[in-house]
Amino acid sequence: MSVQRRYGRLRQPVTLYPTVTRTNRRGETIHGPDLDNPIPIRAAVVPVRSSRGEVKGQIEIATYSLICDEDLRALGLDTWSRVRWRDVDYDVAAPPLYHHGATRHVRHWSAEIRQRPREVGSG
C-alpha cells in the first residue's frame, strides 16, 4: 500500500529562507538567504541520494527532494536560498520545478535540497 502525499501523512514542517539581494560595504550586489524572515510551510521530503563518509575528514552528502503545493519561486526560493528541516540546514541544489501532471491532484512544485556541511566540532 502506498502512502499518499496529499493526505498529509508525509507532509512535515519545513522552514524556507528566501533569497534577498543586498549591497555590501564595497557597493557590490550579493545574494543570500533572508534569515530574519522565515516562511513556514508543510512539504514532503523524499530522499534522492546520499553518500556517507567512512573515514574522519570525508564529506557526507545527503540530497532530498522537497515537494509541496505552494509556488516555491513565488515564495522566493532559488539556489541562493536556505531550507531548514528537522533542525538541519539545507542549501537549494537546483531551482524549483513545476510539475503539471495529468490532473490538479498531482500538480506540485519540487526543489532538490542538499545538506549543508556541519560545523567543525558539532555532532
Rank of each mutant, 00 (worst) to 15 (best):
N24A: 10
E54H: 06
V14P: 00
V48G: 03
Y7E: 13
G53A: 00
D78K: 05
R25E: 15
S81C: 07
C68Q: 05
S50I: 03
V55Y: 13
P38R: 02
V14M: 03
R42G: 01
D69N: 15
R114N: 07
G8N: 01
M1H: 09
D69W: 11
V106W: 08
S81Y: 09
R26Q: 14
P18E: 03
R107Q: 15
I41W: 00
A62Y: 11
T63L: 06
S110E: 09
S51T: 12
D71M: 02
G76A: 02
P95L: 06
H105F: 11
V3I: 15
T23P: 00
T21M: 13
S50C: 04
Y90Q: 02
Q58K: 13
K56H: 11
L10M: 09
A62S: 13
P47S: 03
E54R: 12
A94P: 01
R25Q: 15
S122A: 15
S2L: 15
R52N: 10
E28R: 13
S51Y: 07
V88T: 08
T23W: 05
V14E: 04
R49I: 09
D71C: 04
Y7D: 15
T15C: 11
R11E: 14
V20H: 13
I39N: 00
D36F: 04
A94S: 13
R5K: 04
R9C: 04
P18N: 03
P18I: 02
R118V: 12
P13I: 01
P95Q: 09
V83M: 02
V3A: 11
T103P: 12
R73H: 09
D69K: 14
E112C: 02
G121T: 04
L10R: 12
A43Q: 04
S2A: 15
G8E: 01
S110Q: 11
D91E: 14
S50Q: 07
G27I: 05
R5G: 02
S110H: 04
G101P: 01
I113H: 10
L10C: 05
S81R: 06
P40Y: 03
K56E: 15
V120D: 10
I67R: 12
I39C: 00
T21P: 04
E54K: 12
E28G: 09
R42I: 02
V48I: 09
I113L: 08
S2W: 11
R52T: 14
R26A: 11
V14S: 03
S65M: 07
G27H: 05
R114H: 05
W80C: 15
L75Q: 00
I59H: 05
Y98L: 09
